[in-house]
Design a binder for these strands. Sequence first.
RNA 1: GCCGUUUUAGCUCAGCAGGUAGAGCGCAUCCAUGGUAAGGAUGAGGUCACCGGUUCAAAUCCGGUAAACGGCUCCA
Length: 660
Amino acid sequence: MAEISLTFPDNSQRQFEAGSTTLDVAKSIASSLAKKAVAGQLNGTLVDIEQPLTQDGNFQILTSDDAEGLKVLRNTATFVLGAALKKIHADIHFGEHQSSDDGFYLDTDRAAGQVTVTELPEIKKVMAKIISANQPIERRVADKADLLNEFKDDPYQESLLNAQDAVQVAVYQLGNYTSFGDRALLKSLAPLKHYELLSVAGAYWQGKSSNPMLQRIYGTAFYKAPELEADLKRRAEIKERDHRTIGRDLDLFFVDPEVGAGLPYWMPNGATIRRVVERYIIDKEVANGYQHVYTPVLANLNLYKTSGHWAHYREDMFPPMDMGDGEFLELRPMNCPSHIQIYNHHNRSYRELPIRIAELGMMHRYEKSGALSGLQRVREMTLNDGHTFLAPEQIQDEFKSVLKMMMEVYDDFNITDYTFRLSYRDPANTEKYFDDDEMWNNAQAMLKQAMDDLGLDYYEAEGEAAFYGPKLDVQTKTAMGGEETMSTIQLDFMLPEKFQLTYTGADGQEHRPVMMHRGIVGTMERFVAYLMEMYKGAFPTWLAPVQVEVIPVNLDLHTDYVKDIQKQMAAKGLRVKVDLRNEKMGYKIREAQTQKVPYTLVVGDQELADQSVSVRRYGEKDAADEPLQEFIQSVQADVNNYSRTTETSANSSIEAKLDK
RNA sequence: GCCGUUUUAGCUCAGCAGGUAGAGCGCAUCCAUGGUAAGGAUGAGGUCACCGGUUCAAAUCCGGUAAACGGCUCCA
């Protein structure tokens, strides 16, 4: 009898009879392991627990405690969901499905009427029936040709089958529901007890917007009830962190349909946060050699024809305004052409380089209506934009210095949760970009080299570049779990060419500069939204719209003192609100807490007599008396220190690399 | 833009076998003058998103438009 050799995670090796199953292997190790085992993993591929093993290789037994073991449960849930849908709608077709850390989904299509959310409870009932019947799911290996015949009326399954290289395909079957593809399912449906169907949403077949749209059913499943409960609770709590919820509760911004979708209004509270960020970043940039400018949001369309925006970015631009005299004005979608005009306004010498032009530049992009979302995705936005014009040999140093400034800013805002992404053009779709293979390859290689030299971790993504050049993007997560670009550094050889930019070199000849586009805090809209979510609305003192709220114990006796405190603090540039409404103290304190004001002061006879204040910090239950002057100084220190509690820099290791 | 859902007072929502609207919070006024998370009373506030249709009668049924939400595609 032939034998196979399995290497376990601890590197030990054992021989088994060919055709042994994961369950056999588990039993040979420990009966407790056999009980917990849900599947195996051979050379990275999931195998069913009773699937015969015929190959040597690295082998791992997956249990209900493993992340991969959870996937097996979710694969099984997806399968049962499919079986249930097939029972309810015999004519339903299935697209792709997936299990992940966040749950599972199954794509469906039904010509007679798509599945909707209202059907989910019924579907769940049918799933429960299938699970309690607990018929074994039959696994077999079938000829691709036979399967093609079986699925000849289902274009999606047919297409998925044709994409398979193998002649033989693994098939799972339960009743008249058949599903193929390599994956592991549970042997018994019994452990599938704690699951939920969450939502239904449209999804393009194979992710292409030119393809038909299927209905994607999302769900999740766990081995243990408390895990499911915790996950559902987590999903409910996402809403509390969502910047749209916080924006309304704290009166930060709104979007008014009467005005237009994607055109947010900043209320005084939100405007205050934005103003603090704007002042901060302008000061920072000026200190780092940037020259801040103001340029118009409107420009002659020709500017964007020259830049290539009209050719490559038109879909995202508002339609030009026909002025009636042959002139067309365009709302700018990017600031780069404007800054190029600034560069071009004078003759430039190599001695001036690098020239750094910066602006909080307002731009307009006609985003697709379905993409709009609060402040995260808008049609009018203000970018913390900067363009450096430099000589080619200055690229490396400038890249490093931008990155260094970025890390310093992240430190001040206490931002630590992000990843670097190198964004390249899509090689299969080059017509979307400026056409110059050599420049693209060069620029991409230079960016990668710079990151490697610095020893920074990053991942690479094709198809994410700007149309004029590759980018280093800093990716962050929204409360909803979406990934978004916050900061970006872009290398551009194209626009200097298009605009015929030059500088006079030491040799007296004209040379072409390189452009570096960069945004540090990104757009004010997205950045402030990010801060809202990161802090759950409880902004640190230096950013908080209201830093201190003062409440008198008795309106008749203490109003003067409250006003005096406000006056003194306002004189120091602090943002103080007094609450002189005819309400009880407890009521006002509650409101100050729900509005997440960093410091709530209560003053009565005692405080008035001592010229002190009773200080209660946000989120704390207790209050403590403190001399007024001492308190004012401590708040000032808090603000000046960007409300950092520790001196150590979260990004220090990266900064150290940059200093080398 | 696409698929699905939703749209009722400033906010959160109820009403919907078709018979022209309700609650809580908030707001205003009055009473209560209160020491660390909601004191009481009274009152104002809505052409039920908008435009059409069906009907004796539409917030409720049907169609269209817009916006929001969940996703997909796209993106700072």
